[in-house]
Design a protein around this nucleic acid. Structure first.
Length: 450
RNA sequence: GGCCCCUUCGUCUAUCGGCUAGGACAUCUGGUUCUCAUCCAGGCAAGAGGAGUUCGACUCUCCUAGGGGCUGCCA
Protein backbone atom coordinates (compact mmCIF):
# COMPACT_ATOMS: atom_id res chain seq x y z
CA UNK A 1 0.00 0.00 0.00
CA UNK A 2 1.23 3.43 -0.91
CA UNK A 3 2.13 5.67 1.98
CA UNK A 4 -0.37 8.41 2.66
CA UNK A 5 0.71 11.87 1.61
CA UNK A 6 1.00 14.24 4.54
CA UNK A 7 1.82 17.88 3.97
CA UNK A 8 1.85 20.77 6.34
CA UNK A 9 1.52 24.52 6.32
CA UNK A 10 3.81 25.82 9.05
CA UNK A 11 3.62 29.58 9.43
CA UNK A 12 5.13 31.48 12.29
CA UNK A 13 2.49 33.76 13.77
CA UNK A 14 4.63 36.84 13.98
CA UNK A 15 2.45 39.10 11.90
CA UNK A 16 -0.46 39.06 9.54
CA UNK A 17 -0.63 36.34 6.95
CA UNK A 18 1.32 37.29 3.90
CA UNK A 19 0.10 36.51 0.37
CA UNK A 20 3.27 34.57 -0.43
CA UNK A 21 2.71 32.55 2.66
CA UNK A 22 -0.90 31.85 1.95
CA UNK A 23 -0.02 30.73 -1.56
CA UNK A 24 2.22 28.11 0.02
CA UNK A 25 -0.80 27.08 2.07
CA UNK A 26 -2.92 26.88 -1.08
CA UNK A 27 -0.38 24.70 -2.85
CA UNK A 28 -0.07 22.44 0.17
CA UNK A 29 -3.81 22.18 0.49
CA UNK A 30 -4.29 21.38 -3.20
CA UNK A 31 -1.55 18.80 -3.14
CA UNK A 32 -3.10 17.07 -0.15
CA UNK A 33 -6.58 17.12 -1.66
CA UNK A 34 -5.25 16.02 -5.04
CA UNK A 35 -3.45 13.04 -3.58
CA UNK A 36 -6.14 12.23 -1.08
CA UNK A 37 -3.67 12.87 1.70
CA UNK A 38 -3.70 15.04 4.77
CA UNK A 39 -3.19 18.77 5.07
CA UNK A 40 -1.80 19.65 8.48
CA UNK A 41 -1.50 23.00 10.16
CA UNK A 42 1.44 23.68 12.38
CA UNK A 43 1.88 26.95 14.20
CA UNK A 44 5.57 27.62 14.62
CA UNK A 45 5.35 29.81 17.65
CA UNK A 46 8.79 29.23 19.12
CA UNK A 47 9.76 32.85 18.64
CA UNK A 48 8.06 33.83 21.87
CA UNK A 49 8.91 37.49 21.55
CA UNK A 50 7.24 37.97 18.21
CA UNK A 51 4.45 35.40 18.18
CA UNK A 52 1.05 36.67 19.26
CA UNK A 53 -2.36 35.07 19.87
CA UNK A 54 -3.88 37.76 17.66
CA UNK A 55 -1.71 36.69 14.76
CA UNK A 56 -2.84 33.10 15.26
CA UNK A 57 -6.49 34.20 15.19
CA UNK A 58 -5.89 36.19 12.00
CA UNK A 59 -4.25 33.14 10.50
CA UNK A 60 -7.25 30.93 11.27
CA UNK A 61 -9.67 33.53 9.91
CA UNK A 62 -7.77 33.94 6.67
CA UNK A 63 -7.56 30.21 6.12
CA UNK A 64 -11.21 29.77 6.83
CA UNK A 65 -12.07 32.65 4.52
CA UNK A 66 -10.16 31.00 1.68
CA UNK A 67 -11.65 27.60 2.37
CA UNK A 68 -8.37 26.06 3.45
CA UNK A 69 -9.57 23.44 5.89
CA UNK A 70 -6.96 21.40 7.65
CA UNK A 71 -6.96 17.84 8.91
CA UNK A 72 -6.20 16.78 12.44
CA UNK A 73 -5.53 19.05 15.38
CA UNK A 74 -3.56 22.24 15.02
CA UNK A 75 0.00 21.44 16.03
CA UNK A 76 1.62 24.08 18.20
CA UNK A 77 5.38 23.93 18.04
CA UNK A 78 5.84 25.22 21.59
CA UNK A 79 3.96 22.16 22.85
CA UNK A 80 6.59 19.86 21.41
CA UNK A 81 9.61 21.44 23.06
CA UNK A 82 10.43 18.44 25.23
CA UNK A 83 10.60 16.27 22.12
CA UNK A 84 12.88 18.79 20.42
CA UNK A 85 15.26 18.73 23.37
CA UNK A 86 15.07 14.97 23.62
CA UNK A 87 16.26 14.76 20.02
CA UNK A 88 18.99 17.25 20.73
CA UNK A 89 20.21 14.95 23.51
CA UNK A 90 20.35 12.12 21.01
CA UNK A 91 22.35 14.26 18.63
CA UNK A 92 24.71 15.20 21.45
CA UNK A 93 25.19 11.55 22.33
CA UNK A 94 25.81 10.49 18.76
CA UNK A 95 28.28 13.31 18.24
CA UNK A 96 26.10 15.12 15.69
CA UNK A 97 25.87 18.07 18.02
CA UNK A 98 28.09 19.84 20.49
CA UNK A 99 27.94 22.68 22.95
CA UNK A 100 30.02 25.77 22.63
CA UNK A 101 30.28 29.17 24.21
CA UNK A 102 29.31 31.85 21.74
CA UNK A 103 28.77 35.54 21.62
CA UNK A 104 25.75 36.56 19.64
CA UNK A 105 25.41 39.62 17.44
CA UNK A 106 23.85 41.64 20.16
CA UNK A 107 26.67 40.87 22.52
CA UNK A 108 25.08 38.15 24.65
CA UNK A 109 27.49 35.41 25.64
CA UNK A 110 26.30 31.93 26.54
CA UNK A 111 26.46 28.25 25.77
CA UNK A 112 24.53 27.15 22.68
CA UNK A 113 24.16 23.74 21.11
CA UNK A 114 25.44 23.48 17.57
CA UNK A 115 24.64 20.92 14.92
CA UNK A 116 27.77 19.43 13.43
CA UNK A 117 27.63 19.45 9.64
CA UNK A 118 29.47 16.73 7.74
CA UNK A 119 32.84 18.06 6.64
CA UNK A 120 32.98 16.37 3.28
CA UNK A 121 30.73 14.96 0.62
CA UNK A 122 27.75 16.44 -1.13
CA UNK A 123 24.23 16.84 0.13
CA UNK A 124 21.65 16.44 -2.57
CA UNK A 125 17.95 16.16 -3.06
CA UNK A 126 15.49 16.20 -5.90
CA UNK A 127 13.21 19.15 -5.52
CA UNK A 128 9.84 18.56 -7.15
CA UNK A 129 9.79 22.05 -8.62
CA UNK A 130 13.42 23.08 -8.81
CA UNK A 131 14.88 19.77 -9.89
CA UNK A 132 18.11 18.24 -8.66
CA UNK A 133 19.84 20.28 -5.98
CA UNK A 134 23.31 19.67 -4.65
CA UNK A 135 25.64 21.44 -2.31
CA UNK A 136 29.03 20.62 -0.91
CA UNK A 137 28.85 19.96 2.80
CA UNK A 138 31.93 22.09 3.36
CA UNK A 139 30.00 25.12 2.12
CA UNK A 140 27.62 24.91 5.02
CA UNK A 141 28.60 26.03 8.49
CA UNK A 142 27.64 24.32 11.70
CA UNK A 143 24.55 26.03 13.03
CA UNK A 144 22.84 26.59 16.36
CA UNK A 145 19.91 24.40 17.33
CA UNK A 146 19.48 25.32 21.01
CA UNK A 147 19.75 28.82 22.41
CA UNK A 148 21.76 29.64 25.51
CA UNK A 149 18.48 29.89 27.39
CA UNK A 150 17.80 26.27 26.52
CA UNK A 151 15.05 26.85 23.96
CA UNK A 152 15.16 24.96 20.66
CA UNK A 153 15.74 26.88 17.47
CA UNK A 154 13.72 26.64 14.26
CA UNK A 155 15.97 24.10 12.51
CA UNK A 156 15.66 21.38 15.12
CA UNK A 157 12.06 22.16 16.02
CA UNK A 158 11.00 22.16 12.39
CA UNK A 159 12.63 18.85 11.59
CA UNK A 160 11.51 17.07 14.75
CA UNK A 161 7.95 18.26 14.20
CA UNK A 162 8.02 17.05 10.63
CA UNK A 163 9.16 13.67 11.89
CA UNK A 164 6.50 13.60 14.60
CA UNK A 165 3.77 14.69 12.21
CA UNK A 166 5.00 12.11 9.71
CA UNK A 167 5.20 14.72 6.98
CA UNK A 168 5.97 13.19 3.59
CA UNK A 169 6.22 16.31 1.43
CA UNK A 170 7.50 19.71 2.44
CA UNK A 171 6.09 22.42 0.22
CA UNK A 172 7.38 25.81 1.28
CA UNK A 173 8.91 29.05 0.13
CA UNK A 174 12.03 29.41 -1.88
CA UNK A 175 13.73 31.17 1.00
CA UNK A 176 14.14 27.80 2.68
CA UNK A 177 16.25 26.05 0.04
CA UNK A 178 19.50 26.64 1.90
CA UNK A 179 17.93 25.38 5.11
CA UNK A 180 16.92 22.22 3.34
CA UNK A 181 20.53 21.04 3.04
CA UNK A 182 20.88 21.51 6.78
CA UNK A 183 17.58 19.88 7.57
CA UNK A 184 18.37 16.83 5.49
CA UNK A 185 21.45 16.31 7.63
CA UNK A 186 19.35 16.50 10.78
CA UNK A 187 16.83 13.99 9.45
CA UNK A 188 19.66 11.60 8.70
CA UNK A 189 21.42 12.17 12.02
CA UNK A 190 18.15 11.34 13.73
CA UNK A 191 17.77 8.23 11.64
CA UNK A 192 14.59 9.53 10.07
CA UNK A 193 13.46 9.28 6.49
CA UNK A 194 14.00 12.49 4.53
CA UNK A 195 10.75 13.82 3.09
CA UNK A 196 10.30 15.07 -0.47
CA UNK A 197 10.75 18.79 -1.00
CA UNK A 198 9.09 21.32 -3.25
CA UNK A 199 10.28 24.92 -3.07
CA UNK A 200 7.98 27.63 -4.31
CA UNK A 201 9.30 30.80 -5.89
CA UNK A 202 8.47 34.12 -4.38
CA UNK A 203 5.76 36.54 -5.28
CA UNK A 204 7.21 39.97 -5.95
CA UNK A 205 5.60 43.39 -5.89
CA UNK A 206 4.98 45.82 -8.76
CA UNK A 207 8.59 46.95 -8.51
CA UNK A 208 9.81 43.39 -8.86
CA UNK A 209 10.99 43.28 -5.27
CA UNK A 210 9.99 40.67 -2.72
CA UNK A 211 6.95 41.71 -0.75
CA UNK A 212 7.80 43.40 2.47
CA UNK A 213 5.61 44.62 5.25
CA UNK A 214 5.89 48.11 3.86
CA UNK A 215 4.22 47.16 0.62
CA UNK A 216 0.65 47.35 1.71
CA UNK A 217 -1.76 44.93 0.10
CA UNK A 218 0.64 42.23 1.19
CA UNK A 219 -1.72 40.72 3.71
CA UNK A 220 -4.57 38.40 2.97
CA UNK A 221 -6.98 40.31 5.21
CA UNK A 222 -6.54 43.45 3.16
CA UNK A 223 -7.93 41.75 0.09
CA UNK A 224 -10.93 40.59 2.05
CA UNK A 225 -11.47 44.13 3.37
CA UNK A 226 -11.10 45.56 -0.12
CA UNK A 227 -14.01 43.45 -1.29
CA UNK A 228 -12.24 40.66 -3.11
CA UNK A 229 -13.95 37.30 -3.17
CA UNK A 230 -11.95 34.49 -1.57
CA UNK A 231 -12.51 32.32 -4.64
CA UNK A 232 -10.96 35.01 -6.82
CA UNK A 233 -7.89 35.48 -4.63
CA UNK A 234 -7.46 31.72 -4.37
CA UNK A 235 -7.71 31.27 -8.12
CA UNK A 236 -5.41 34.18 -8.83
CA UNK A 237 -2.74 33.06 -6.38
CA UNK A 238 -2.88 29.55 -7.77
CA UNK A 239 -2.20 30.85 -11.27
CA UNK A 240 0.82 32.78 -10.06
CA UNK A 241 3.27 30.01 -10.79
CA UNK A 242 1.07 27.22 -11.98
CA UNK A 243 -1.37 26.55 -14.81
CA UNK A 244 -3.42 23.56 -15.82
CA UNK A 245 -1.51 23.12 -19.09
CA UNK A 246 -4.25 24.52 -21.28
CA UNK A 247 -5.88 27.93 -21.66
CA UNK A 248 -8.26 27.65 -18.75
CA UNK A 249 -7.80 30.30 -16.11
CA UNK A 250 -11.02 30.37 -14.16
CA UNK A 251 -11.16 27.02 -12.43
CA UNK A 252 -13.59 25.51 -10.01
CA UNK A 253 -12.23 24.20 -6.76
CA UNK A 254 -12.88 20.68 -8.02
CA UNK A 255 -10.93 21.30 -11.20
CA UNK A 256 -8.07 22.77 -9.22
CA UNK A 257 -7.90 19.73 -6.97
CA UNK A 258 -8.07 17.39 -9.91
CA UNK A 259 -5.48 19.15 -12.07
CA UNK A 260 -2.98 20.46 -9.55
CA UNK A 261 0.49 19.10 -10.08
CA UNK A 262 3.57 20.19 -8.16
CA UNK A 263 5.88 19.17 -10.98
CA UNK A 264 4.31 21.88 -13.15
CA UNK A 265 4.91 24.68 -10.71
CA UNK A 266 7.01 27.47 -12.15
CA UNK A 267 10.53 28.01 -10.87
CA UNK A 268 10.82 31.75 -11.46
CA UNK A 269 9.39 34.44 -9.24
CA UNK A 270 6.05 35.93 -10.29
CA UNK A 271 4.94 39.52 -10.12
CA UNK A 272 1.62 40.24 -8.52
CA UNK A 273 -0.75 41.94 -10.98
CA UNK A 274 -3.61 43.66 -9.23
CA UNK A 275 -5.40 44.39 -12.52
CA UNK A 276 -5.72 40.74 -13.32
CA UNK A 277 -6.94 39.97 -9.84
CA UNK A 278 -9.57 42.66 -10.28
CA UNK A 279 -10.69 41.17 -13.55
CA UNK A 280 -10.84 37.76 -11.97
CA UNK A 281 -12.82 39.14 -9.06
CA UNK A 282 -15.37 40.50 -11.54
CA UNK A 283 -15.58 37.09 -13.18
CA UNK A 284 -16.32 35.49 -9.84
CA UNK A 285 -18.90 38.12 -8.97
CA UNK A 286 -20.69 37.30 -12.21
CA UNK A 287 -20.71 33.68 -11.15
CA UNK A 288 -22.46 34.32 -7.86
CA UNK A 289 -25.92 32.73 -8.09
CA UNK A 290 -28.46 35.48 -8.77
CA UNK A 291 -30.55 34.72 -5.70
CA UNK A 292 -27.51 34.84 -3.49
CA UNK A 293 -26.39 38.16 -4.91
CA UNK A 294 -29.91 39.54 -4.50
CA UNK A 295 -30.05 38.48 -0.86
CA UNK A 296 -26.65 39.98 -0.22
CA UNK A 297 -27.85 43.33 -1.54
CA UNK A 298 -31.15 43.19 0.31
CA UNK A 299 -29.39 42.43 3.56
CA UNK A 300 -26.74 45.08 3.00
CA UNK A 301 -29.34 47.84 2.76
CA UNK A 302 -31.59 46.52 5.48
CA UNK A 303 -34.35 44.98 3.39
CA UNK A 304 -33.47 41.58 4.75
CA UNK A 305 -34.96 38.22 3.97
CA UNK A 306 -38.46 39.71 3.70
CA UNK A 307 -37.27 41.61 0.64
CA UNK A 308 -39.09 44.73 1.64
CA UNK A 309 -39.36 47.51 -0.92
CA UNK A 310 -39.57 50.65 1.21
CA UNK A 311 -40.29 53.09 -1.60
CA UNK A 312 -42.93 51.03 -3.34
CA UNK A 313 -46.10 50.84 -1.33
CA UNK A 314 -47.79 49.50 -4.45
CA UNK A 315 -45.75 46.32 -4.35
CA UNK A 316 -47.42 44.51 -1.53
CA UNK A 317 -47.16 40.80 -2.09
CA UNK A 318 -44.09 38.75 -1.34
CA UNK A 319 -43.71 37.48 -4.86
CA UNK A 320 -43.76 40.99 -6.27
CA UNK A 321 -41.14 42.17 -3.81
CA UNK A 322 -38.81 39.31 -4.58
CA UNK A 323 -39.27 39.87 -8.30
CA UNK A 324 -38.43 43.54 -7.78
CA UNK A 325 -35.22 42.62 -5.99
CA UNK A 326 -34.33 40.02 -8.60
CA UNK A 327 -34.70 42.60 -11.33
CA UNK A 328 -32.59 45.17 -9.50
CA UNK A 329 -29.90 42.73 -8.43
CA UNK A 330 -29.61 41.32 -11.92
CA UNK A 331 -29.00 44.80 -13.28
CA UNK A 332 -26.35 45.55 -10.69
CA UNK A 333 -24.49 42.27 -10.66
CA UNK A 334 -22.85 42.61 -14.09
CA UNK A 335 -21.60 46.06 -13.18
CA UNK A 336 -20.10 45.09 -9.88
CA UNK A 337 -16.34 44.95 -9.59
CA UNK A 338 -16.16 44.81 -5.82
CA UNK A 339 -18.90 43.29 -3.77
CA UNK A 340 -18.68 45.93 -1.09
CA UNK A 341 -19.45 48.70 -3.60
CA UNK A 342 -22.67 47.12 -4.79
CA UNK A 343 -24.92 48.27 -1.92
CA UNK A 344 -24.19 51.91 -2.76
CA UNK A 345 -25.84 51.36 -6.11
CA UNK A 346 -28.99 50.26 -4.30
CA UNK A 347 -29.44 53.14 -1.85
CA UNK A 348 -31.50 55.35 -4.13
CA UNK A 349 -33.97 52.53 -4.64
CA UNK A 350 -34.73 51.98 -0.99
CA UNK A 351 -34.56 55.46 0.49
CA UNK A 352 -35.13 59.07 -0.45
CA UNK A 353 -32.10 59.89 1.60
CA UNK A 354 -29.50 58.68 -0.84
CA UNK A 355 -26.00 60.07 -1.41
CA UNK A 356 -25.66 62.63 -4.16
CA UNK A 357 -22.57 62.94 -6.29
CA UNK A 358 -21.93 66.69 -6.57
CA UNK A 359 -19.77 66.25 -9.63
CA UNK A 360 -22.58 64.53 -11.45
CA UNK A 361 -24.99 67.27 -10.44
CA UNK A 362 -22.59 69.89 -11.72
CA UNK A 363 -22.08 68.08 -14.99
CA UNK A 364 -25.63 67.03 -15.78
CA UNK A 365 -28.05 69.18 -13.84
CA UNK A 366 -26.57 72.64 -13.45
CA UNK A 367 -26.57 73.09 -17.15
CA UNK A 368 -28.72 75.31 -19.30
CA UNK A 369 -31.70 73.38 -20.50
CA UNK A 370 -31.51 70.71 -17.83
CA UNK A 371 -34.38 72.12 -15.85
CA UNK A 372 -36.56 72.38 -18.91
CA UNK A 373 -35.66 68.86 -19.87
CA UNK A 374 -36.72 67.57 -16.45
CA UNK A 375 -40.00 69.43 -16.59
CA UNK A 376 -40.71 68.31 -20.13
CA UNK A 377 -40.02 64.69 -19.27
CA UNK A 378 -42.02 64.91 -16.08
CA UNK A 379 -44.94 66.20 -18.08
CA UNK A 380 -44.81 63.29 -20.50
CA UNK A 381 -44.35 60.72 -17.75
CA UNK A 382 -47.24 62.12 -15.77
CA UNK A 383 -49.77 60.92 -18.27
CA UNK A 384 -48.45 57.35 -18.15
CA UNK A 385 -50.77 55.28 -16.00
CA UNK A 386 -49.16 53.23 -13.23
CA UNK A 387 -50.10 50.06 -15.07
CA UNK A 388 -48.03 51.06 -18.09
CA UNK A 389 -45.00 52.10 -16.07
CA UNK A 390 -42.49 49.86 -17.81
CA UNK A 391 -38.95 50.45 -19.05
CA UNK A 392 -39.92 49.93 -22.70
CA UNK A 393 -42.76 52.40 -22.51
CA UNK A 394 -40.64 55.08 -20.84
CA UNK A 395 -37.84 54.56 -23.30
CA UNK A 396 -40.26 54.95 -26.18
CA UNK A 397 -41.38 58.27 -24.76
CA UNK A 398 -37.86 59.64 -24.46
CA UNK A 399 -36.97 58.31 -27.91
CA UNK A 400 -39.86 60.18 -29.36
CA UNK A 401 -38.87 63.31 -27.47
CA UNK A 402 -35.32 63.22 -28.75
CA UNK A 403 -36.47 62.73 -32.33
CA UNK A 404 -33.43 60.69 -33.31
CA UNK A 405 -30.99 63.29 -32.04
CA UNK A 406 -29.76 61.10 -29.23
CA UNK A 407 -31.33 60.64 -25.85
CA UNK A 408 -28.34 61.94 -23.93
CA UNK A 409 -29.60 65.44 -23.16
CA UNK A 410 -32.77 63.96 -21.66
CA UNK A 411 -31.40 60.87 -20.06
CA UNK A 412 -28.45 62.32 -18.17
CA UNK A 413 -30.29 64.95 -16.15
CA UNK A 414 -33.04 62.47 -15.31
CA UNK A 415 -30.54 59.91 -14.11
CA UNK A 416 -28.84 62.33 -11.75
CA UNK A 417 -32.17 63.74 -10.61
CA UNK A 418 -33.58 60.38 -9.55
CA UNK A 419 -30.44 58.55 -8.42
CA UNK A 420 -27.92 61.19 -7.46
CA UNK A 421 -25.28 59.52 -9.61
CA UNK A 422 -23.93 59.84 -13.10
CA UNK A 423 -23.72 56.16 -13.76
CA UNK A 424 -25.54 53.02 -12.87
CA UNK A 425 -28.02 50.58 -14.28
CA UNK A 426 -30.02 51.35 -17.40
CA UNK A 427 -32.08 54.49 -16.84
CA UNK A 428 -35.42 53.09 -17.90
CA UNK A 429 -34.96 49.98 -15.82
CA UNK A 430 -34.09 52.32 -12.99
CA UNK A 431 -37.28 54.31 -13.44
CA UNK A 432 -39.41 51.20 -13.64
CA UNK A 433 -37.90 49.94 -10.38
CA UNK A 434 -38.36 53.30 -8.73
CA UNK A 435 -41.99 53.42 -9.75
CA UNK A 436 -44.14 56.19 -11.14
CA UNK A 437 -44.70 58.07 -7.93
CA UNK A 438 -41.07 58.28 -6.85
CA UNK A 439 -39.84 59.13 -10.31
CA UNK A 440 -42.25 62.03 -10.64
CA UNK A 441 -41.62 63.40 -7.17
CA UNK A 442 -37.86 63.26 -7.60
CA UNK A 443 -38.04 64.92 -10.99
CA UNK A 444 -40.06 67.82 -9.66
CA UNK A 445 -37.92 68.08 -6.56
CA UNK A 446 -34.78 68.30 -8.69
CA UNK A 447 -36.34 70.77 -11.11
CA UNK A 448 -37.45 72.97 -8.25
CA UNK A 449 -33.94 73.02 -6.82
CA UNK A 450 -32.49 74.39 -10.06
C1' G B 1 32.70 38.48 -0.68
C1' G B 2 31.10 33.01 -0.76
C1' C B 3 27.38 29.28 -2.09
C1' C B 4 22.73 28.40 -4.60
C1' C B 5 18.58 29.65 -7.84
C1' C B 6 16.09 32.41 -11.77
C1' U B 7 15.54 35.17 -16.95
C1' U B 8 9.42 34.21 -23.37
C1' C B 9 4.85 40.36 -24.96
C1' G B 10 4.08 45.88 -19.74
C1' U B 11 2.13 41.42 -16.37
C1' C B 12 0.80 35.95 -15.58
C1' U B 13 2.02 32.16 -18.78
C1' A B 14 2.01 27.99 -23.32
C1' U B 15 6.08 25.81 -25.92
C1' C B 16 9.08 19.93 -23.32
C1' G B 17 14.62 20.48 -31.09
C1' G B 18 10.67 22.15 -36.41
C1' C B 19 7.61 28.72 -34.44
C1' U B 20 4.02 32.34 -39.29
C1' A B 21 6.23 31.91 -30.86
C1' G B 22 -0.30 30.61 -28.69
C1' G B 23 -3.73 32.34 -24.61
C1' A B 24 -5.22 35.63 -20.59
C1' C B 25 -4.86 40.53 -18.00
C1' A B 26 -3.56 45.47 -19.20
C1' U B 27 -3.59 48.87 -23.31
C1' C B 28 -5.41 50.78 -28.11
C1' U B 29 -9.27 50.83 -32.25
C1' G B 30 -14.13 49.79 -33.84
C1' G B 31 -19.28 47.85 -32.94
C1' U B 32 -23.66 47.55 -29.45
C1' U B 33 -25.59 51.51 -26.01
C1' C B 34 -28.99 56.58 -22.22
C1' U B 35 -24.31 56.57 -18.43
C1' C B 36 -21.06 53.10 -16.06
C1' A B 37 -20.30 48.26 -16.96
C1' U B 38 -21.12 43.85 -19.75
C1' C B 39 -20.82 41.82 -24.54
C1' C B 40 -18.74 41.35 -29.69
C1' A B 41 -14.78 42.24 -33.52
C1' G B 42 -9.86 43.62 -34.28
C1' G B 43 -4.76 45.84 -33.33
C1' C B 44 0.00 46.62 -30.70
C1' A B 45 3.41 43.72 -28.01
C1' A B 46 8.22 38.74 -26.15
C1' G B 47 12.60 34.38 -26.31
C1' A B 48 18.50 39.30 -21.53
C1' G B 49 23.37 39.31 -24.50
C1' G B 50 27.25 36.23 -26.59
C1' A B 51 29.50 31.61 -28.00
C1' G B 52 28.88 26.33 -28.90
C1' U B 53 26.16 21.45 -30.21
C1' U B 54 22.69 20.48 -34.37
C1' C B 55 20.16 20.02 -40.95
C1' G B 56 17.47 23.04 -37.51
C1' A B 57 17.78 26.06 -30.82
C1' C B 58 12.99 29.80 -27.05
C1' U B 59 13.94 24.70 -26.06
C1' C B 60 20.51 21.36 -24.90
C1' U B 61 25.83 23.17 -23.06
C1' C B 62 29.08 27.14 -21.54
C1' C B 63 30.18 32.30 -20.57
C1' U B 64 28.50 37.29 -19.47
C1' A B 65 24.86 40.60 -17.65
C1' G B 66 20.71 41.48 -14.64
C1' G B 67 17.47 39.83 -10.64
C1' G B 68 16.65 36.91 -6.21
C1' G B 69 17.72 33.64 -1.92
C1' C B 70 20.95 32.17 1.98
C1' U B 71 25.34 33.29 4.62
C1' G B 72 21.55 34.84 12.97
C1' C B 73 21.36 32.34 19.99
C1' C B 74 14.71 34.90 13.26
C1' A B 75 11.46 31.62 10.99
Amino acid sequence: MKKETRVRFAPSPTGKVHIGNIRAAIYNWLYARHTGGKFLLRVEDTDLERSTPEAIQVLFECMKWLGLDWDEEVFYQTKNVSRHLECVEKLLESGHAYKVEKTSRDGKTGVVTMFRMPKEGTIEFDDIVKGHMAKKAEDIQDFAIVRSDGSPIFHIANVVDDIDQRVTHIIRGDDHVENTFKHICIFRALGAEVPRYAHLSMIVNQQGKPYSKRDGAAFVGEYRDEGYLPEALFNYLLLLGWNPGDDREILSREEMVELFDLAKVHVAAAKFDLKKLQWMNGEYIKKIPAAQFRDYLANAVGAGAAHTVPLRADIADERGRTAWWDYLAGQIQVRTKFLKDAPDAVRCFVSDDFPVDEKAVEKRLRKPGAKDALLEIAGRFEVVPAGDWKAEKLEAIVKELSQGAGMGPWVHPVRVAVSGRGEGIGLFEMLELLGREKTLSRLSRAAAAL
